[in-house]
Design a protein around this nucleic acid. Structure first.
Length: 878
RNA sequence: GCCCGGGUGGCGGAAUGGCAGACGCGGAGGUCUCAAAAACCUUUGUCGAAAGACGUGUGGGUUCGACUCCCACCCCGGGCACCA
């Protein structure tokens, strides 16, 4: 028997698969060498070419490869592509460090990763590889930018933005992590006012939220929750307050607030503006209040967002000297400013209801403002004294904190007695009343902000825009695309796109005068927001993708990737898909039908990272155990969505398992080899299941009773395990699928030990049975250990087509059943006996047998009840 | 504070309301060997000599029967957070 040599086998089969194009998708009608099979699109998040492939990649891509190979064996035409998300800042940093260029570094890493992925035997259609820094790809990103421009989804505006002082660029809100830190380098961010380019993702806020419902059950719940959270929809009302002049007389001006609690409007005793609110300086200019107001404004401005959100939240504030009129009751309330009011949410103005809002409550206590209760819980002692009070009398509450829950409205004029709370009947009644007078309206507010896509970096997709002194901001005409990124910018000497005259200077496409290009590039997340569409039509040089191609394959049937993209990439991709649908380029609204968020691979509880020096390199593991063992092990460690801790001893265990199966399959086949039977050809003799069952009975005399029993078990296991593995792969429980294969191997091992070759070779049918067991084992392992299985399938079993093109094994549940079953007998819920009994025993006989088995325990006590669970147990109650 | 996810042997983890701990790692003992490694066999939740008792974060409940369902709570991980 040949020794199991993973390296020799793996390299040899990888070469064969590459030569025969084993993973190339066959498209088009069958007569043109295409496929009539149903399509399946399996996709893993493409890597950033930061260096070597790491264990996280191995896990991600092993999962995707099992699904792809399994689906192919089930008869699907599978699209399983890969590519590289190759623009981005790390390339610039690495180039500086190595005195190279971002392009050199990036493309060298891509080649390294490509070699590693091939070494792992992943079944990608390499002809479709998409590299986002290739002009053939990013030109279509520019094309989509222009399409979005046409649709009004692109906007240039000045706003406060997050600036990373280390990466020297602005970031999108989604790229701010933890306590105001850069998602990539973890530096604390600064706030700047800059004019930047935005994609209007907020136009899709409602649909992005609504469609999360479609993803229920097929996307992980936590991802759906995170996105819903991030979009942050609040229902409520806008209310217009009339501003009074310095003398306290009403003016024509109104200030609008957003509130989720219009039912508490009667409890509004003051009004707040954000320190940055554009009205504030005018309101206080030249008044005695100016000094104090300015002090609060400056204090707020000097505080970083971290300081503002951290620690004690003491409320700073100042009275402006002005008043506004509460439209619901005509009361004049004072206008204050406070740093807890945010300019970029709602309208930057707030109606303060201290009895119903924790922050307003604190502020009122700090500055001695009244706190009249307007919504009170019926079980609050206060309720009895206020029930039915329509006019305000009690102007303070004996509470230590605000009451923000649902209750009954009091001291609220005509609304008194209605249910109060978020989205309550009372809230609706107040909105209706305000709407009737034209001073308020129902509205919805989102937390989601527009997507800031400008990056002040070189290594990215150029924003196709030209600035002309005459014509202003002009998009690059679509026929002038692509705007080619110079590949040789010298980042080592601080060269930038702006310092390159041949890039910067351009003719205005409208008036022809000298103009200059935009030198910012797009956020790399714009590149990864549609790459999965390009895979369906990767060589199209007229469009990003043809509609027929994209509609044929999309949406992705199964997407697999890390949880770190729960919001970023997955939200942006959903937005792109919806926008491209509205552009008429495709006909679906959600890109990923199913999502699997795989867990991380850690070492001693820590995230592996080069900087920590705690990295386990996949290539070291391949060198020691082979790619197949590594793939099987990483799937076996835990269910795919859980974090796992790397444990090399477990990998050694899987290697032992493969060696064991290797020997076992040789043993099953090798016995046959010595027999003339083998000469008829192994392939045609795999037994049908009923034939095998007959064989066990017919050839029984040749085997010892123990061997017969072991053999019968192998037959049952062969059917049970195929069923179990099929079900487990469908549910992505690869760990239990592998465990089940081990159980089949264990049963087979016992059979081989007990049935020594001479007796086992007593007849032909038994050989056929042996061969079938061998073939089933090999097929079950094929998606996970593709080279190992291919070698056994073609090299040993003698087939001349790939195991990966074979039909997935079927199974007969009836043959998985044993003739006899062990039934547990419980007395008062405790197992007291076991009985072995024919599996087709009637319930009555089973009941009688069970009662006999526990007669001692029952003794003289009367039996009150007997529950019979066929095939499982009998429960006796005495 | 709000919203998710999760607590099972020494470890990773299995279990449609039906014998908790499948499968693997690790441990112990053995076979083979001059010896070692490899391989193979037996064993391995805790207490107990055994019979047996106890055991899935805690406390209740439903049920003939609960890791699983219901209620309350504790702990761990993650996301959001002065969002009106």
């Amino acid at each position: 028997m040949q020794k199991y040599d993973p390296h020799e086998i793996e390299l040899r089969w990888q070469a064969v698969w590459e030569r025969t194009g084993a993973s190339i998708v066959r498209e088009g009608p069958p007569e043109d060498n295409g496929s009539a099979a149903p399509r399946y699109y399996a996709l893993e998040m493409f890597p950033y070419p930061s260096g070597d492939v790491h264990m996280g990649h191995v896990r991600n891509y092993s999962i995707g490869d099992v699904i792809s190979r399994y689906k192919r064996m089930c008869g699907f035409e599978v699209l399983h592509p890969i590519g590289w998300d190759s623009f981005g800042l790390p390339a610039e940093n690495a180039a500086i460090k190595q005195s190279s260029t971002p392009a050199t570094w990036t493309y060298a890493n891509i080649e390294r990763q490509r070699a590693s992925l091939k070494r792992l035997g992943f079944s990608y259609d390499w002809d479709r590889a998409v590299i986002t820094s290739d002009v053939d790809y990013y030109r279509w990103g520019q094309w989509i930018f222009l399409k979005f421009w046409e649709m009004g989804l692109v906007e240039r505006r000045s706003s406060p933005v997050n600036w990373c002082p280390s990466c020297l660029t602005v970031l999108a809100n989604e790229q701010v992590v933890g306590e105001n830190q850069c998602w990539r380098c973890k530096s604390t961010l600064e706030r700047k006012d800059l004019e930047q380019w935005y994609f209007r993702i907020t136009s899709y806020a409602q649909e992005l939220l609504d469609d999360l419902e479609l993803l229920k059950g097929v996307w992980p719940e936590r991802v759906r929750q995170m996105q819903a959270n991030w979009i942050g929809r609040s229902t409520g009302a806008e209310v217009d307050f009339v501003l009074c002049d310095a003398a306290g007389e009403p003016t024509d001006e109104t200030i609008t607030v957003f509130t989720t609690r219009p039912d508490t409007l009667f409890g509004c005793t003051f009004f707040l503006l954000a320190p940055e609110h554009p009205l504030v300086r005018n309101l206080v200019a030249g008044t005695p209040y100016e000094g104090e107001v300015k002090r609060v404004i400056e204090a707020a401005a000097s505080q970083s967002a971290v300081e503002r959100s951290k620690g004690e939240r003491t409320k700073n504030g100042a009275f402006t000297g002005r008043f506004v009129i509460n439209p619901i009751n005509g009361e004049k309330v004072p206008v204050w400013i406070s740093d807890y009011v945010l300019m970029d949410y709602g309208t930057g103005a707030v109606m303060a209801v201290p009895s119903g809002d924790e922050r307003d409550f604190e502020f009122a206590r700090a500055f001695g403002l009244p706190i009249p209760p307007v919504v009170v819980a019926p079980d609050d002692p206060l309720f009895a004294t206020l029930e039915g009070v329509r006019e305000r009398r009690v102007d303070d509450v004996p509470w230590s904190e605000a009451f923000a829950g649902a209750g009954i409205m009091v001291q609220s004029g005509p609304f008194t007695g209605l249910a109060g709370g978020k989205d309550s009947a009372g809230a609706q009644a107040v909105i209706d009343a305000l709407a009737q007078q034209g001073v308020g309206r129902a509205t919805v507010n989102f937390r989601l902000r527009d997507w800031l896509i400008s990056r002040q970096r070189y290594w990215g997709n150029p924003i196709p825009v030209i600035y002309c002194e005459q014509c202003g901001i002009v998009p690059v005409p679509v026929e002038s695309l692509p705007v080619v990124l110079p590949m040789d910018i010298d980042v080592v000497r601080n060269e930038t796109l702006a310092s390159r005259a041949d890039f910067l200077n351009v003719e205005c496409p409208v008036c022809g005068r000298p103009a200059r290009r935009e030198t910012d590039t797009m956020d790399t997340f714009t590149c990864s927001s549609w790459y999965y569409l390009r895979y369906t039509d990767p060589h199209n040089d007229e469009l990003p993708f043809a509609r027929e191609a994209v509609d044929a394959w999309m949406p992705v049937d199964q997407y697999i990737g890390g949880i770190e993209h729960a919001i970023l990439h997955l939200l942006y991709s959903r937005f792109f898909t919806k926008a491209l649908r509205d552009a008429g380029l495709l006909s679906f609204g959600e890109p990923f039908s199913r999502l699997l968020a795989q867990g991380m691979v850690k070492l001693e509880g820590e995230v592996m990272s080069k900087s920590k020096g705690n990295v386990v390199a996949p290539e070291d593991m391949i060198a020691a155990y082979g790619a197949d063992a590594l793939r099987v092990f990483i799937l076996f460690m835990a269910p795919p969505d859980k974090d796992v801790d790397w444990e090399e001893k477990g990998l050694a265990g899987i290697y032992r398992f493969l060696v064991r199966v290797w020997r076992m399959v040789h043993d099953l086949v090798g016995a046959a080899c010595e027999d003339t039977f083998f000469e008829k050809g192994v392939g045609e003799n795999a037994a049908s299941a009923p034939a095998a069952a007959a064989a066990i009975a017919a050839s029984a005399p040749a085997l010892t009773p123990a061997a017969q029993e072991a053999c019968a078990l192998v037959l049952r296991e062969r059917h049970r395990v195929v069923g179990k593995v099929t079900e487990d792969i469908e549910r992505f429980n690869f760990n239990t699928a592998i465990a089940a294969i081990m159980e089949l191997a264990n049963a087979t091992g016992d059979y081989l030990r007990l049935a020594s070759p001479p007796s086992r070779m007593a007849d032909e049918t038994r050989h056929a049975f042996d061969l079938e067991v061998a073939e089933v084992l090999v097929k079950l392992l094929a998606p996970m250990a593709p080279h190992f299985s291919e070698e056994l399938w073609q090299g040993l079993l003698g087939h001349d087509t790939s195991v990966h093109t074979q039909a997935w094994p079927d199974f007969d549940p009836d043959l998985a059943q044993s003739q006899t079953v062990e039934i547990a007998v419980q007395v008062n819920g405790k197992v007291r006996a076991h009985i072995n009994i024919a599996s087709d025993t009637s319930d009555e006989k089973l009941r009688a047998a069970a009662l006999a088995a526990v007669a001692a325990q029952i003794a003289e006590r009367p039996v009150r009840k007997v529950v019979v669970v066929p095939g499982k147990l009998v429960s006796v109650v005495i």
